[in-house]
Design a protein around this nucleic acid. Structure first.
Lengths: 238, 238
DNA sequence: ACAAAAGTGTTGGAGATACACCCATGA
DNA sequence: TCATGGGTGTATCTCCAACACTTTTGT
């Protein structure tokens, strides 16, 4: 049974958003992490997902976009909400507390966070650290270090959602950018699902989607047969 | 003795949970609503989903269970988180503001709410209104009135999730209570999905689930062939 | 000419769908 | 004995998985 918190403990309840931005190129699936600024001699900076408080009066989706932009400079991508994380101990690790004492007025607050994820071609975005992010890094999903707070758990959860969406071909028209070849799209699915797919079967299933639009354009500058380029129809781009 | 505080007293960004409890009997799918207490001459009470603030230091899942119990007396059911709603205007309707001014210290706070849903046999639970709920009602899903806040939207969203879970047979062992006949289970699926299902095919697909346990027990007191009773194995009951 | 990825159809099997009759009980 | 829902099997069809060769370009 939860012990009620009393006023004398001077605690707060805050809301944040955390963004899991998956990035891919032709053979890698990575996640965009930020590295915390080193704040003092004793402080050991950690890596973390880009995330920060929601403003009062701000919509959650907008907050996710704003926070991502403030910390990494990245904007204009579709962020999909996937889960809320509210364990009161999620920010109570020793390193986490140390960090929060330096950057927050209420370091002991209970912070509920709303998780968002997205998927982009890495080459289309060039993250630049700012605010309390010292650096940004694309880190391979198979090589994720210990992250701040419960961000490892949030990341695992996001990956599950990404895989489920990919299996159902929901991913593509919501989360994919610009134009691509079917080969690239297949590589992407293989990266996400972590298994090989049959080329002909993949093409059959993907071509059934009427969101898939063949462009009047072919690949150039490749030393093999150039591929048809495709795009996904965006339902509601902002 | 100090009383528990909620965020509302310290902050203007609050967190609440709202519970969408679907109830069924043999031919109806309903939702548990509460009716707000009438607070003054001019106040027009509305119906709403059971929901209230999360305490500081309280886990979201626990909060959902506590809040549901406080308002309706119902406890011990599996509540599944499905979405966070954070539109800053979601509590700014005129009637909503009027209500909040009477029951909250900071009626103008921005309230982010986390939606939970569940599914129960109505006969297994007997809701009793308390706290700021004046009454509780099981209301048919096809006959939902205008609700407080954005609760109509939350309810629609919950129904979508319920349907998706039902189609994939995820629903059953997570959200279903006690023992039932296959006929009842089929009726339930038909209610939720709003379409007829083939009896033999339904039984085939449902019998493949190894969470389905036949009990050493048959229906009694019915004036037709008594049905075998079944139960679902709970993975992790609390 | 060669290397590299693009592009293309058919077959077999598994799983989903359609469909009709007898059974056990209480009234 | 009748009304009511319980309970069962088969034939067809649709969807998914497996599989190999030709084409186009740059080097």
């Amino acid at each position: 049974m939860q012990r009620p918190i009393t006023v004398s403990e001077r605690n707060f309840l805050n809301i944040s958003v955390d963004c899991v931005v998956f990035g891919f190129d032709d053979n890698q699936l990575k996640v965009l992490l930020i590295e915390q600024d080193k704040l003092s001699e004793t402080h050991i900076p950690m890596s973390a997902l880009p995330g920060d408080h929601v403003y009062i009066g701000e919509d959650l989706d907008e907050a996710a976009n704003r926070v991502l932009k403030e910390l990494t400079g990245i904007q204009g991508l579709y962020l999909k909400q996937f889960h809320a994380f509210g364990n009161p101990d999620r920010t109570k690790g020793e390193k986490d507390s140390q960090w929060l004492r330096q950057v927050r007025k209420d370091p002991d607050a209970h912070i509920v966070t709303i998780g968002y994820y997205s998927l982009v071609r890495m080459e289309d975005f060039n993250p630049v650290a700012s605010s309390f992010a010292k650096n940004t890094d694309w880190v391979d999903v198979n090589d994720i270090p210990d992250l701040a707070f419960d961000h490892n758990e949030i990341l695992d959860y996001a990956l599950e959602h990404l895989r489920a969406d990919t299996e159902n071909n929901h991913i593509s028209f919501e989360l994919l950018p610009k134009k691509f070849t079917l080969g690239q799209l297949q590589q992407l699915h293989e990266l996400i699902l972590d298994k090989k797919l049959d080329k002909r079967n993949f093409r059959k299933s993907i071509k059934k989607l009427d969101e898939l639009i063949p462009l009047n354009e072919k690949q150039t500058g490749v030393y093999h047969k150039p591929a048809q380029l495709y795009s996904f129809e965006r339902n509601e781009d902002k």
